[in-house]
Design a protein around this nucleic acid. Structure first.
Lengths: 206, 206
DNA sequence: TTTATGTTTAACAATTTTGTTAAAAATGAA
DNA sequence: TTCATTTTTAACAAAATTGTTAAACATAAA
């Protein structure tokens, strides 16, 4: 029994499919295109993952988990609130730079089929919202931050981080950026977002 | 020659297809589903619009024009800058309430095929960006607004307006809102966005 | 009523895509 | 090497979808 070979091919398909979907943005890639990208026979996709659908679920779970772990770690540290949020912004943008089309996928899948939202849900205790609210309210009562509900705070934050990823093409066209300029724009944007949220310059966070 | 009947059916297909695509969110509706929604034979779609593709282009052009006209009118008035922006926010949200899935469509189409961005581009002279920049810079030099580039200003603004539309399902699930609550949330959000942008309460604009 | 024109329909062909399967190939233990 | 198991392949079947076409139908003018 060659367990190594199996893992090799299975992992190869997953890796290449991730590239195709979340990096190249071919969200409706066919099983044939996935097979081509991985350089394997199309039937292997069904052999290892049963269906296109199940492959997708597997990929999503992996990539979402990667993102959620990073965020959970940041939000569970003992840093001051504003530092945490600065790191949070950085993590969202960086993950977006790694998988530029992941958010597009989440958005189109959930729009097409709201039930599939389950695939993207994190465990109750780790939801960013819960991890942020208490500390946010403390800061507000101390007068360090203008009053705002946790709901609006989070949605503002995530809107400012995610929309420029979703609208890559629109923004590039509209503001005449090539890929390099767009990347640079996103990196610089971390500071812009922090300033929009807190109305003050972002401190350096390693 | 029954010109009336033709316009009736043609307009019927367009109207029902708009509902299907931009209101119900079935962005990948088949020609059969479109025909069913309009209660006509599927071949009529090809008779009037040649292909599914061309129907889509027609619909888009109409809906985008409707949106762009509203925005152009707001930005070309002589109102004070902050009033204009308040109206601009209102118009973006209201259009999103009318066609909840239009932005999803723009985003997925341009991600899938960047060339198709042409379909969404407005004429150079009417681009919101151009209409806002000069006045924004004036306000900044008068010290009424914190320094920010027009690019970042616009992208912040549009991110805050559009993301909650794109992420309808995610937000509803995450914050436990039904459709009514979500609508209310969007309407109230106009003030939240204004405050996030200008750091002060939004004045009443009719 | 006849005729020409425009509108609608059912049936068909072509293509694309998914998933299955039986057989071939590779692998590794006995 | 032999044999059992796993992996891979090519070929096939089924379903979905788009676009075409020829004929039926409706309408209004002559």
């Amino acid at each position: 029994m060659s367990k190594e070979k199996e893992l090799e091919t299975e992992a190869l398909i997953k890796d290449k499919a991730k590239v195709l979907f979340f990096q190249k943005g071919l969200l409706d890639a066919t099983t044939q295109e996935i097979a081509d990208e991985a350089g394997v026979n199309r039937a292997l996709i069904h052999y290892y993952f049963r269906s296109r659908e199940q492959l997708m679920e597997t990929l999503l779970e992996e990539v979402m988990l990667e993102k959620q772990e990073t965020i959970r770690e940041i939000l569970k540290t003992e840093h001051p609130f504003k530092i945490k949020i600065a790191k949070f912004i950085g993590a969202l943008i960086d993950h977006g730079l790694k998988y530029p089309y992941l958010e597009n996928f989440v958005i189109s899948e959930t729009a097409r089929n709201p039930d599939r939202i389950k695939l993207f849900r994190q465990k109750e205790k780790n939801r960013s919202h819960e991890l942020v609210r208490q500390q946010l309210e403390e800061e507000i009562s101390k007068g360090n931050i203008d009053p705002i509900t946790a709901q609006n705070f989070m949605i503002n934050l995530i809107s400012l981080c995610n929309y420029p990823l979703l609208a890559k093409t629109v923004i590039q066209c509209f503001h005449g950026m090539n890929d390099t300029e767009y990347r640079k724009f996103l990196v610089q944007r971390k500071q812009v977002i922090y300033k929009a949220i807190f109305n003050e310059e972002m401190p350096d966070v390693e």
